[in-house]
Design a protein around this nucleic acid. Sequence first.
DNA 1: TTATATGCAAAAGCTTTGCATGGGT
DNA 2: ACCCATGCAAAGCTTTTGCATATAA
Lengths: 141, 141
Amino acid sequence: MDEALRARWLEHAHRTLSSSGRRAGAARTAIIQVLARDGQCLLTAQELLDRLGPRGSYSSVYRSLDELCSLGLLHRMSGRDGVARYEIADPDRHHHHLIDETSGTAHPFNDDELERVIAAVAVRLGVTLTGHDVVIRGRPS
Amino acid sequence: MDEALRARWLEHAHRTLSSSGRRAGAARTAIIQVLARDGQCLLTAQELLDRLGPRGSYSSVYRSLDELCSLGLLHRMSGRDGVARYEIADPDRHHHHLIDETSGTAHPFNDDELERVIAAVAVRLGVTLTGHDVVIRGRPS
DNA sequence: TTATATGCAAAAGCTTTGCATGGGT
DNA sequence: ACCCATGCAAAGCTTTTGCATATAA
C-alpha cells in the first residue's frame, strides 16, 4: 500500500544494518527487499522463504529475521498456532490485529483511543511502556 | 489466590467434561487438579507435566489441554518464544498481561476502561467480539 | 462388555546450530 | 587478507499421532 513507507523502511534497514557492522550478502539483501514489499503484516518465515525462491535458505532467513528483530527493525509475534510471524516495525504507523474467526484471516487496524488507554494503564501499573500488542477476535456482525 | 474460584472451576470442568461424554481417567483428573491450583496464569505444558510427576505423560497432557480448550475451559496463548501457555478460563474474572522486560515475568491485570474501548473498537470494525488479548511490555518506572 | 483414556515411542513441524565454503569491505 | 555471510545438513524442541494396553461406565 504505502510505497513511500516501504522505501523509507528499506533505506532505514540498510543503514542500520551496515552501521551495526554487518555485511550485505545476497540473501539478506533479498530478504529485506521481500520484507519491505510483503512484510507489512504477519509474514511467516516459510512464506518469506517461498517468496525468496533460490535466493535464500532456512539459515539465512532465520538468522536475518533474528538480526532484524534485535535491531528493532522487525516485530516478531506468534499466532495461536505457535508459528512465528513477522512484520516491519514502523515507529509512526503501528497497528493491531483483528482476527476474523470465520475465515481465520488477520486484518490490521489502529485506534487512537486504544493507544491512549494503554498508555494510561501503563502509568497506573507503574511501568514505562516498551511495547504492546492487542489481538481482537470476532465475527462479522 | 481465590480459593472459591478454583473450586468453582474444578467443579465446572468436571461437569462439562462428563456431560460431553468423556470419561474421567487418572491422568486427566490429576491434570485438572493441577490446573485449578496453578493454572491461573500462563502455565506451559512442560511445567504442568513437571508438576504431575508420574501421574501424567506428554500424550495425556497435550490431549487434555486440547480438550479443555475446545470446551472453553482453558485459554491457550503463545508467548513470544513460541511456547504455548495455558490458563483457566473464568468468564467473570478475565485478565490481561503485563510483561516486565527487566525480569521477563508476567503479571496479570485488568482495566475496565480498556475493556470498554475494546468493545467500542469491535463495534467500529463491524464485528461481534469473541475474544481479545492485550499484552503490555514495560520496565518499572 | 465396549468404547474411551493412557503411555510409550516414533513422527512431524518449526527453528537453531556446526561447519565448510563463498563473498564483502 | 580478513572476517562475515551463506547453505547444507544435522540437531533441538515443542507438539502430535499410532498403537497396544488398561480402565471407566
